[in-house]
């Protein structure tokens, strides 16, 4: 049995050697998942905000759907995106299948509901505090949303982080729409899946450890931003 200790050694070795392929994979992982997170925030935040402050019929149903979509299976998302982007699919003419863009699209679909649902919660809580004051000031709905998003920005960072965490860790969607093509669409998770299927469990685990360290790094960066903000009572 290949030991976890061996994986640690291998991970250190990989990082220390400055392996070019590894760097390429790591950078692509970050590029795809960070872009997907950014786009998902652009889509999910306004939706979350509208549901947070809106009082419309069917709101309860929208909430249930939003929360349910948080559990979208990555493979299903991958499949649906594949069917659309396939050359024989409705968007095949774009030639996006097996590109990082396709992976960004799939991950965006995967995490936009997470961003929407979690930011809805954050903004609704803040709105409960601000609502009466804002009504007294006669703010428009747009002004209210803008103010809420701005004032909740540090909490929303955590929401973005949750989305990023899900995106960077998923394999089911990107392996279908990206194809795990070497030097083109291979990311950390698909590389881990590949090494596992080759039976190279130590290498797979080593890559997993590196992914974990990257996730830790991103989290630590966001956390330090939040701490700074907390000192200034912006949280």
């Amino acid at each position: 049995m290949q030991s976890i200790g061996e994986a640690f050694g291998l991970a250190l070795q990989l990082v220390a050697s400055g392996d070019g392929d590894l760097l390429e994979i790591v950078l692509l992982s970050l590029r795809v998942s960070l872009t997907a997170t950014a786009v998902a925030c652009l889509i999910g935040l306004p939706i979350g905000a509208l549901v947070a402050i809106g009082r419309f019929s069917g709101r309860g149903a929208v909430l249930i759907v939003m929360n349910a979509l948080m559990g979208l299976p990555p493979v299903v998302v991958g499949l649906v995106v594949y069917l659309h982007l396939s050359r024989s699919g409705p968007l095949g003419f774009l030639g996006l299948l097996y590109t990082p863009t396709a992976m960004i699209i799939a991950q965006t679909i995967l995490i936009a509901p997470i961003v929407a649902a979690l930011s809805r919660q954050v903004l609704e809580d803040l709105h409960a505090e601000y609502a009466e004051q804002f009504r007294s000031l006669c703010l428009t709905r747009l002004q209210t949303v803008q103010a809420l998003i701005w004032d909740a920005r540090y909490s929303l960072l955590t929401v973005g982080l949750a989305g990023f965490g899900r995106a960077v860790a998923e394999v089911g969607a990107v392996i279908i729409v990206g194809g795990n093509i070497d030097h083109l669409t291979r990311v950390m998770t698909t590389a881990i899946a590949l090494e596992t299927s080759k039976g190279d469990l130590a290498l797979a685990l080593a890559l997993g450890l590196i992914l974990l360290v990257i996730a830790l790094g991103v989290n630590a960066a966001v956390q330090s931003v939040r701490m700074t903000a907390a000192r200034h009572a912006h949280v």
Partner: peptide
């Protein structure tokens, strides 16, 4: 409403 203002017992200030 727009021509009036209300100061609450506990001021609700923006996080700014």
């Amino acid at each position: 409403t727009k021509r009036q203002a209300l100061v609450f017992q506990k001021p609700v200030l923006l996080r700014r």
